[in-house]
Computed example of a mutant assay.
Amino acid sequence: MVFYFTSNVVSPSAFIYVGKDKFENEDLIQFGLDNDVCAHVYVRLREGETWDNIAQPLLEDCAQLTKANSIEGNKKDNITIIYTPWSNLKKDGSMAAGQVTFHNHKLVRKVYVKQRENHIVNRLNKTKVEKYPDLRAEKEEYLRKKMRGDRKTREEQRAQEKKKQQEYEQLKWQKAHAYDDMFTEENLESSNNQDRDENFLDDFM
C-alpha cells in the first residue's frame, strides 16, 4: 500500500507519497523514477522542475510529512531531514528493509525542522489517499515513454544537423561558382574585340 498526498502550496499541485511501512518503501526504492526526490517520503517532480529548484513551501510539506511519519522523529524537535534524488539512493543485500545509503554524498541536502507544524500535517492528511499501485508496471511505462522521447530528440537533432550540413554545402557551392556567369560563351563573345568596327581604336584613343 502507498499513501498519496496532494500539496497545494505550489501550482500545479505536487504529489507526495510514502509506503505504508519500511517493506512498502523497499518497492519505492526499487521502482523509483528519475524525477523522484526522496527523504522518508517521495515527491515526484513536474516537467521542467529539478531537485535544485524545489519550492521552499513544498520542501516544508515534505519535511513535515517525513517527521510525522517517523516514529522517532515525530517525538523530537529540532531535527534535520535529508533528501536526495532517487537515482542517488544506494541499496545492497546487506542492508535492512528500508535502509539505504548514497552513491554521492555531495548530492544529499538537509532541511531543518524546528518542530511539528500541525496545520501543515493536517492539511496534507486531508488529501491522503490509499492505493495499491503496480510500481513495476509504472516504472516500465515510464521507461518506454522516456525511450520514445529520447529517440524523438535524437531524430530531431539529426534532422537539424542534416539541415545545417545542407545549408553549408549550398553556401560552399555558391562561393565556388560565384563567377561562373562571367565566363559564359555569351559574355565572352560580347567582350571579344574581333567583332568591333574599324573605328574601335579611334574611339578608344
Rank of each mutant, 00 (worst) to 15 (best):
E141M: 11
Y132H: 14
L107E: 15
N125M: 14
Y132S: 12
V108E: 07
K131G: 09
R116V: 06
E130Y: 11
V111M: 15
V121Y: 01
L124Y: 01
V121T: 08
E138Y: 04
E140H: 01
R116Y: 03
Y142C: 03
L124D: 00
Y112Q: 12
Y112F: 13
E138I: 05
N118P: 05
K110D: 15
E140F: 01
K139T: 04
T127Q: 05
E130G: 06
E138C: 06
K128P: 04
E117Q: 15
H119K: 14
Y132G: 07
V108N: 08
D134Q: 02
L135K: 03
I120C: 01
E141P: 02
R136G: 02
R109Q: 10
K114Q: 12
K139E: 04
E141S: 13
R123P: 03
D134K: 02
R136T: 06
E138W: 07
V129Y: 07
L107K: 11
E140C: 04
K114W: 01
K131C: 11
E141Q: 14
K128H: 06
V111C: 13
V121S: 03
R136I: 07
T127D: 07
E138V: 04
E141I: 09
Y112M: 07
K114H: 10
K131V: 12
V129H: 08
R116F: 04
K128Y: 12
E141K: 11
R123E: 13
K126V: 07
N122F: 10
V113P: 02
K126I: 07
E117N: 11
K110Q: 15
R116A: 09
E130S: 12
P133M: 01
Y132N: 15
K131H: 08
K110R: 13
E130A: 13
N118Q: 11
V113H: 01
L135A: 00
N125S: 15
Y112G: 10
E130M: 14
N122I: 12
K110H: 12
N118K: 10
R136W: 04
V111P: 01
R109K: 14
H119M: 07
P133A: 03
V113L: 04
V111F: 11
Q115Y: 05
Y112S: 12
R116Q: 09
R123T: 15
N125D: 14
I120L: 08
L124C: 05
V113K: 00
K126D: 11
Y112T: 12
N122Y: 06
L135M: 04
V121L: 02
L124F: 02
K110C: 14
N125W: 11
H119Y: 13
K131Q: 12
P133N: 03
Y132T: 13
V113Y: 00
A137P: 01
E138N: 09
E130Q: 12
R123K: 10
E138A: 08
R123Y: 03
R136N: 08
Q115R: 10
E138S: 10
A137M: 06
R109T: 00
N125F: 12
K126M: 14
V121G: 02
K114S: 14
E140S: 04
R136E: 10
L135S: 00
Y142Q: 04
V121F: 02
R123V: 11
N125V: 06
E138K: 06
N122K: 09
A137K: 06
L135F: 02
N122S: 13
R116L: 14
R136V: 07
H119T: 14
V108R: 04
